[in-house]
């Protein structure tokens, strides 16, 4: 069993304090939503888990059977090697490399290299448009295709835990739906555990099991299941226009 737990962390950028005392938990094969409007710290939390932003207090622990690993002492490379992958905000593809080259880079970590061909087949099967455009440079693709590539590139690293940061940004409502469905499908087929930061509550609720609401860098609400989230006053106020 894997479990990722964030325990009362503080984090920020120099003098700017962003997260204070944030705790959350992601258990194996769950899809957990991290909701919050602009600037509330969703991306910062994702970057803390990946070791890209330092944590000033608290711990982030990956529990794997009997093993407990504190990620706050690990480098990004070590965290990726543990099977955690992030689809970053803004996709961050390698713009002047081809679709195929972007995917192969996803398999850089030692543990993913032996499974590269199998993962590549999976990705091309899940996103046929990527196969059709495998020789195209990433920057020249549409927003929706770029988002697919970003997700596929993360899948190429054979992750156990997949973090996805606002996949719906800049996509049409129809593409948002497709993207969410695809994340749901990949999760089921690959047995992933997913933490997804989103502002689009409605679409997120279609695949999430439960969720947290982040307000001003603190967890303002924790929904133990989808119903609790749906009926939360905070969610109603911020996301459902009630």
């Amino acid at each position: 069993m894997v479990k990722l737990s964030v325990n009362a962390i503080d984090a920020g950028y120099g003098a700017v304090h962003v997260l204070s005392g944030v705790s959350l938990e992601i258990r194996e094969s769950e899809t957990v939503a991290l909701l919050g409007t602009n600037g509330n710290g969703k991306s910062t939390l994702m970057k803390c888990i990946m070791g890209l932003t330092p944590v000033t207090r608290g711990s982030i622990v990956l529990e794997d059977d009997e093993e407990r690993i504190d990620l706050t002492t690990k480098s990004t490379q070590e965290i990726v090697a543990l099977g955690i992958a992030l689809v970053p905000e803004g996709r961050r593809l390698f713009p002047k490399l081809t679709v195929h080259e972007n995917l192969l880079l996803g398999a850089f970590r030692a543990g993913a290299r032996t499974e590269m061909q199998r993962n590549l087949d999976r990705c091309y099967a899940a996103f046929p448009v990527l196969r059709e455009r495998s020789g195209q440079l990433a920057y020249s693709m549409s927003g929706g295709q770029q988002q697919m590539l970003a997700i596929a590139r993360a899948v190429m690293s054979s992750p156990r835990i997949l973090l996805v940061d606002e996949p719906s940004v800049g996509l049409s409502p129809m593409l948002v739906k497709q993207t969410m469905d695809m994340i749901g499908t990949l999760k089921r087929e690959l047995g992933l555990t997913v933490l997804m930061a989103e502002q689009n509550f409605h679409e997120t609720s279609r695949i999430a099991d439960r969720g947290y609401v982040l307000v001003h860098g603190q967890i303002a609400f924790e929904g133990k299941n989808l119903q609790e989230l749906l009926h939360s006053d905070l969610v109603k106020r911020h996301y459902l226009g009630a």
Binding site: P88, R92, F94, P95, L105
Partner: peptide, 16 residues
């Protein structure tokens, strides 16, 4: 080939 295009993204692939 990728490193100058986006270092953070490359770190997320598990490369230093």
């Amino acid at each position: 080939k990728a490193v100058a295009q986006d270092q953070t993204a490359l770190a997320l692939m598990g490369a230093d």
